[in-house]
Design a protein around this nucleic acid. Structure first.
Length: 277
DNA sequence: ATTGGTTCCTGCTGGC
DNA sequence: TGCCAGCAGGAACCAA
């Protein structure tokens, strides 16, 4: 489940391989992602030299040296980017929908069984008003993301903290795993309404979100099933989850209380009833 | 304007 | 053992 830490890890790993590399050939084997891959996709990308990679929320943005567009890439639920070197060329698998070959001999494969991912070309001049990006909320590591800022964002929000934190229009990049972990870290109940948190709690929550994300990025993200670095490495943050997926196990902070799993807007929330108030 | 519910998709799991 | 319902989740979309 690529959330901010997974996408950031993919970005950093991918940079090592494709920065300054020129695309020789693009093959699309399945155009039916979240939005259909346009028919000029291949010819637009072929010949382009990768200049820069940027992560925004859970999106990966590829900038090219001479193109007047970017490649906007979302890994969806099950998306995985695989780097293949000429020496280790493996056969294409069922859900490898897109292959990008570079003149260096390197090849990228985008594998996405559930096809919730997306690959779009967005003109640079439309970037600032492109709705998928312009509607995104604050980046958790942005300087402006502070306690008072979060308090303002949550003012008048009559939704549980869980739902508010998952909303990409408020804060960008958190998914189910890291919302659960951050709320546990902040000792806040996922059931609390966003508008009820006070100044101190907002401060603590901001710090908790950043701390959890920072640790997860350092661990290369969480590998539950699909997530891998482009070079094949797994993330390890799943080994230190405090609550996510730990229903019925002991809370690592209060020791003897069992972690609860509840459904909030039809999605699992894991939390400790005792220490998350 | 906000909020909650539904939907897309495939692979895995648990119950019978 | 085999089948199938149910679940997993990111986020657009729709309805209230």
């Amino acid at each position: 489940m690529p959330e901010l830490p997974e996408v950031e890890s993919v970005k950093v790993n991918l940079e090592r391989y494709i920065l300054d590399q020129t695309i020789e050939k693009v093959e699309v084997h399945h155009r039916g992602l979240r939005w259909p891959i346009p028919h000029n996709f291949e010819e637009m990308l072929e010949g382009q030299k990768v200049k820069m990679l940027v992560r925004r929320a859970k999106y990966l943005l590829l900038y090219f040296e001479k193109a007047d567009f970017i490649l906007l890439w979302h890994l969806g639920m099950s998306g995985r980017v695989q780097v293949i070197t000429p020496k280790a060329l493996t056969p294409r698998q069922t859900h490898d929908h897109v292959e990008i070959a570079f003149y260096s001999g390197l090849k990228l494969r985008f594998r996405d069984p559930r096809r919730f991912g997306a690959m779009l070309l967005v003109p640079l001049k439309e970037l600032s008003r492109f709705s998928l990006l312009s509607s995104l909320g604050v980046e958790p590591f942005d300087n402006s993301f502070s306690g008072p800022f979060l308090l303002e964002l949550f003012k008048n929000r009559s939704r549980p903290l869980k739902a508010a934190l998952l909303d990409q229009k408020i804060i960008a990049g958190l998914g189910n795993i890291y919302v659960c972990e951050a709320l546990h870290c902040a000792k806040l109940s996922p059931l609390r309404l966003a508008k009820t948190i006070n100044h101190l709690e907002a401060e603590i929550l901001v710090k908790a979100i950043q701390a959890v994300l920072r640790k997860a990025i350092a661990a290369g993200g969480s590998t539950l099933r699909d997530h891998r670095q482009p070079d094949g490495e797994k993330g390890t943050f799943q080994d230190v989850f405090k609550v996510y997926g730990r229903e019925g196990e002991r809370c690592l902070r209060c020791d003897h209380v069992e972690i609860k799993r509840i459904l909030q807007s039809n999605r699992s929330t894991f939390y400790c009833e005792r220490c998350q108030i």
